[in-house]
């Protein structure tokens, strides 16, 4: 095993983690401020990916497509919040789960209606084509590096937004006492819509960027959504910092587990069995990680408002 291979896998894990962060950040913000569990977040990811590839194809520019996908997801998020989600803030979690599950069914079917059953594909934008050489030979796709950079920049931007701006101040105030900031004259309805749309935009951004790496199809948001749940459970629901740490942890564990567990078992078992046992175990490592962390800390690594 070469150094280049190790670096490549570490970067893959980081890229996956950063992508998960974009999803988890929106989920955790919405839960932290509005106390809402939103299963339909994966559908916003899907909407971002579909609009990115569609607008990208029509306009001929990936960048226009990415912007369009992000806007479409934000817009869809705002509309969903105003029409449905708003009615759920005072309900219990069971109602929220069911209503947002219903939204998934509706959004998936409408997307299938508009875009058809065929998966769409996106090309790597020419600016980011090619690979960066790694020490010891081989190369790493620049596009994946770009995702890491965009993800980390977004995390930093989110940090600045929450700690340095007026909107961020209101978000923090909303997290600690919802009723009070309403009483202080902040238009809480608009604030909620804005936060929901922000989370949706992040999901749309993730969807658009991932559309290049995988096929764009209905249901693509669901595996990512469940991993994002694992991330925020590990990080502590409501904590953006926890979401960042959790997503990098999950991204690295999952990627490295898939690569190295079969090899590890190959030291002890015949190849065929080692591959079978290793890959079976690799598919469950992150859930075992989650269980272990919960036994240790039932409210996640960075518990919010204990």
């Amino acid at each position: 095993m070469s150094l280049a291979f190790l670096i490549e896998q570490l970067l893959n894990g980081l890229q996956f983690g950063v992508m998960l962060f974009l999803m988890a950040a929106g989920l955790t913000l919405v839960f932290g401020v509005m106390g809402l569990i939103n299963l339909a977040h994966g559908s916003l990811f899907m909407i971002g990916a579909f609009f990115c590839s569609w607008i990208g194809e029509v306009s001929g520019s990936f960048w226009v497509g990415l912007g369009g996908g992000l806007l479409a997801a934000a817009l869809a998020g705002a509309v969903i919040e105003i029409v449905v989600i708003r009615r759920l803030y005072d309900r219990d979690h069971l109602d929220q789960v069911l209503a947002t599950f219903a939204l998934i069914l509706i959004l998936s079917e409408v997307t299938r209606w508009i875009f058809g059953d065929q998966p769409l594909y996106l090309d790597v934008p020419p600016l980011l084509a090619g690979a960066l050489p790694l020490p010891g030979g081989g190369g790493y796709p620049i596009y994946r590096l770009a995702i890491i950079v965009v993800g980390l920049a977004t995390a930093y931007g989110l940090y600045l937004l929450i700690t340095r701006t007026r909107l961020g101040m209101r978000i923090r105030a909303g997290e600690s006492d919802r009723e009070m900031i309403g009483a202080l004259g902040v238009d809480i309805r608009t604030l909620y819509t804005a936060i929901f749309a922000l989370g949706a935009a992040l999901a749309g951004l993730a969807g658009g960027m991932v559309g290049v790496l995988q096929s764009v199809q209905v249901g693509m948001g669901e595996p990512v959504l469940i991993l994002a749940f694992v991330v925020i459970v590990i990080g502590g629901i409501g904590s953006v910092k926890g979401a960042l740490v959790g997503s990098i942890l999950v991204g690295l564990t999952d990627t490295l587990g898939r690569v190295f567990l079969p090899r590890l078992f190959a030291l002890m078992l015949p190849t065929a069995e080692a591959t079978a046992v290793g890959s079976a175990l690799a598919s469950v490592t992150i859930y075992l990680l989650m269980a272990a962390i919960l036994v240790w800390r039932p409210r996640g690594l960075f518990p919010v408002g204990a």
Binding site: I226, V233, I237, A280
Partner: peptide, 28 residues
């Protein structure tokens, strides 16, 4: 493990464990 938590944690954890068994079945 799941009942150590409650509320929204419980929902997500039961979901995650079910997903774990799903992936385990796929890998057999």
């Amino acid at each position: 493990v799941s009942l150590r938590t409650s509320g929204v944690y419980f929902i997500m954890i039961t979901l995650a464990f079910a997903q774990m068994i799903y992936y385990l079945a796929i890998s057999l």
